[in-house]
Amino acid sequence: MKSVTLKDVARAAGVSYSTVSRALSDSPQIGQETRERIRRLCDEMGYTKNYIARSMVMKKTDLIGLVVPSIDNHYMSELAYYAEVRAQARGYNIMLCNSAPDLRQERTVVQLLVNRQVDGILIVPQEHHSCEDLKPYADQVPMVFLSEDLRDQPQSCVTTDNARGAYLGVEYLYSLGHRDILYFGRRRAVTHQLRAEGYLQACRDMGLTPRVVDSSFSRSSPEGGYEMAKELFRKPIDYTAIFASTDSNALGIMRAADEMGIQIPEQLSLMGFDNISASALSRIDLTTVEQSKREMATQAVDILLNKIERGTRGYVHQILMPSLIKRGSCRMVG
């Protein structure tokens, strides 16, 4: 099938090629009536801009790559949504890529984006080492990392103070009278290492005995949390609260508790981390630590566009403060 060109539109409108071009670029040389007639005709004929040709002329694609480990993760999908909203508000479109299941795939999709000549890349890395692995591409195209704490790396990143967030969670549970708090978390990524460290530091400061269930061999997902919680609940429950390192895992823990007749919060308090949208649903009502996905995505996009549009050099480490969201999944004890 033949694509509709500007010349086709000009012929149908009975005007010159340059008139059509000016009308579509909002040139003040073209009257409002003519501009609207030409745009209406473009819609009727199915004309679309040739972005490849335009990018060759302008040396710019107005396209940003966004790489996440898995878009079916609630946290990642919300982060991607806010990134797209901000990018579109500033005149850019997003090309979304999943980097799972391994670091080779992460490198492959970043290479794909560079080959497609995106203006810049936002990436939620799979691991802390991703930064070094992707350095050859970061030298070619502006790049900003999200979520992972890269304060020890010379790359721009926007993340949350994860250690502080976990400390806030333990502090709140302690204020409710909980002295046996089980931490359910992963230790693989630096983000989760920091959350675990925040939990351990809070336990030290409050005189609590740390109790950690390592979920590193399970996905951070409702399904992963569910499977591990089923095993956990087959043993005697000698703790009064579970602090899950992600809301996704907390949702799985909640499901396992429901199936096994464990009432939340009457028998067991439950707290998550992230504040994904599902946490606020009335039947879930999960107390959680919030890291602002909107703020993280917005700041990351702005930092990236400063690199693209202003040629900003160097790197920025932006650490956002978490906050506690109190809902109904935790209760006072003792």
Rank of each mutant, 00 (worst) to 15 (best):
M1P: 11
M1R: 14
S3F: 04
V4L: 05
G14Y: 08
S16P: 10
T19V: 14
A23S: 12
L24G: 06
Q29I: 04
Q32L: 11
R35A: 10
R37F: 01
I38L: 10
R40Y: 06
D43V: 12
D43K: 15
Y47Q: 09
Y47W: 14
A53L: 01
S55F: 09
K60W: 04
K60P: 06
L63K: 09
G65T: 08
V67T: 06
M76A: 14
L79E: 10
E84K: 03
E84T: 10
V85E: 14
R86W: 00
R90Y: 00
M95W: 10
M95N: 08
M95I: 15
L96E: 03
C97G: 09
A100Q: 12
L103S: 13
E106S: 03
Q111V: 00
V118D: 06
D119L: 02
G120T: 05
E127I: 00
S130N: 09
C131G: 13
E132A: 12
L134E: 06
P136E: 03
Q140W: 04
Q140P: 05
Q140R: 15
P142C: 02
V144P: 07
F145W: 11
S147V: 15
L150M: 15
D152P: 02
Q155D: 02
Q155P: 00
S156D: 02
S156A: 06
V158E: 03
V158I: 13
T160M: 14
D161E: 11
D161G: 03
D161S: 12
A166Q: 09
L168F: 01
G169V: 05
V170K: 07
V170C: 09
Y172R: 09
Y172A: 08
L173M: 14
L173C: 04
S175Y: 06
S175M: 04
R179W: 02
D180A: 14
Y183N: 10
R187C: 11
H192L: 09
L194K: 15
E197D: 14
Y199S: 05
L200M: 11
C203S: 07
T209C: 10
D214S: 05
D214I: 05
R219F: 10
S220A: 11
M228K: 15
K230M: 14
K230I: 12
L232K: 07
F233A: 03
K235G: 00
I237D: 01
Y239S: 07
S245C: 13
T246R: 02
D247F: 03
R255T: 11
A256W: 08
D258K: 13
G261M: 04
I262W: 04
Q263T: 09
P265Q: 01
S269K: 01
M271N: 09
S277G: 00
A280K: 08
T287V: 01
T287W: 06
Q291C: 12
R294T: 13
T298N: 12
Q299R: 15
L305G: 10
E309H: 11
R310G: 07
G311T: 07
T312Q: 14
T312H: 07
R313K: 15
G314V: 05
Q318R: 15
I319T: 05
L320E: 07
P322S: 06
P322E: 05
S323N: 10
R331F: 01
V333E: 09
